[in-house]
Amino acid sequence: MSDLVTVTREGALTIITINRPEASNALNNDAQVAMNAAFDAFAADDDQWVAIVTGAGPKAFCAGHDLKQQAASGELVSPPNGFGGLTGRKGLNKPVIAAVNGVAMGGGLELALACDIVVAAAHAAFALPEVRVGLAALGGGIQILPQVIGAKHAMGMLLTGRRVSAQEGHALGFVNEIAEGDVLDVARKWAVEILVASPSSVRATKEAVRLGLSTPYDQAIADQWNYPAMKAMFASEDYVEGPKAFSAKRVPEWKGR
């Protein structure tokens, strides 16, 4: 793994850290490749059930694309799975938590929006400032932000590029929690709560939510029984283990299969 991105594993939890604090954790081409590889490895590892993505240092989660590299080369590169290897990744049913430790700008905010849960430090700030530098939020911001906070609030951010505080982000609904202490520790607490649940059920639930957002309600209710992760849940050892553990009044031993 590149030193531009570090990966640590704590049991079934993977922590992916963007390690370019000197560049506000902006992603250059090499960092994009490293992030994509980190998420590939997480997706493929059956023993890893939840991921946290964060940035090194206290100032920045991710400042988006490395515009200095773009200015020098004229290229704006994203891997096939989108900015940071995540914003365009399809079929990842394992949950991902953003631990936003500072500014999240442009692709950095899009990376956070691509996560399932967003925990922010009190000093964190968010923006999609692409319109101010002759670009557009093409890493999913244009599509995801209106879904999360509504079209009017999203337009207010997208058309102006204005900064939003962690407190306003929480009020708008794209931040789940503002950390009073260390943001990574708070993200770990969310991960632990998820890890208490059946990983098969968690994946089935995430898939059903993701696919249901673009499907009419009646159709989604009918279709969810045939979603791949839902069918895998019904066929899993976890599906048998959960009721057994509940009846025996013991802690379930999840297998994730």
Results as ranks from 00 to 15, higher is better:
141 G>W: 09
84 G>M: 01
150 G>H: 15
134 G>P: 11
130 E>Q: 15
135 L>R: 14
155 M>K: 14
87 T>C: 07
158 L>M: 13
104 A>I: 00
96 V>W: 04
119 V>P: 00
147 Q>W: 03
86 L>H: 03
103 V>C: 14
85 G>W: 03
130 E>N: 15
129 P>I: 08
127 A>N: 06
137 A>T: 06
109 L>N: 04
107 G>I: 03
120 A>P: 07
162 R>Q: 15
126 F>C: 07
103 V>Q: 13
135 L>M: 15
122 A>W: 12
148 V>Y: 08
118 V>E: 02
125 A>E: 13
108 G>N: 04
126 F>Y: 12
172 L>F: 10
86 L>P: 01
151 A>K: 11
116 D>L: 05
141 G>K: 02
140 G>C: 07
114 A>T: 01
99 A>N: 12
156 G>R: 04
136 A>E: 13
120 A>F: 04
131 V>S: 11
170 H>Y: 12
159 L>E: 14
92 L>I: 09
121 A>L: 10
102 G>I: 02
151 A>Y: 12
154 A>R: 03
89 R>N: 09
93 N>T: 11
120 A>T: 04
158 L>D: 08
125 A>W: 12
172 L>R: 07
101 N>Y: 00
127 A>P: 06
134 G>M: 14
114 A>I: 00
162 R>T: 11
89 R>K: 13
156 G>L: 01
138 L>N: 12
112 A>V: 00
163 R>M: 13
160 T>C: 13
136 A>W: 15
93 N>M: 07
98 A>E: 00
85 G>Q: 00
123 H>C: 10
153 H>F: 06
112 A>Y: 02
107 G>N: 08
91 G>P: 04
115 C>H: 07
116 D>I: 04
84 G>Y: 03
127 A>I: 06
122 A>G: 11
126 F>I: 03
110 E>C: 10
168 E>I: 00
145 L>D: 02
148 V>F: 12
139 G>C: 09
167 Q>R: 15
150 G>M: 08
99 A>S: 15
96 V>M: 03
132 R>D: 12
94 K>H: 02
85 G>R: 01
139 G>W: 01
141 G>H: 00
164 V>A: 08
140 G>E: 12
165 S>G: 11
116 D>K: 08
92 L>Y: 14
96 V>H: 07
154 A>M: 09
159 L>F: 15
157 M>N: 06
119 V>F: 06
121 A>S: 10
158 L>N: 10
133 V>P: 07
118 V>G: 05
128 L>R: 03
94 K>Y: 08
141 G>M: 08
170 H>V: 05
121 A>P: 01
84 G>W: 03
99 A>M: 09
92 L>M: 14
157 M>L: 15
121 A>N: 10
145 L>K: 02
124 A>R: 04
161 G>S: 13
155 M>H: 14
169 G>C: 09
154 A>E: 03
133 V>Y: 14
147 Q>A: 08
119 V>K: 03
115 C>L: 13
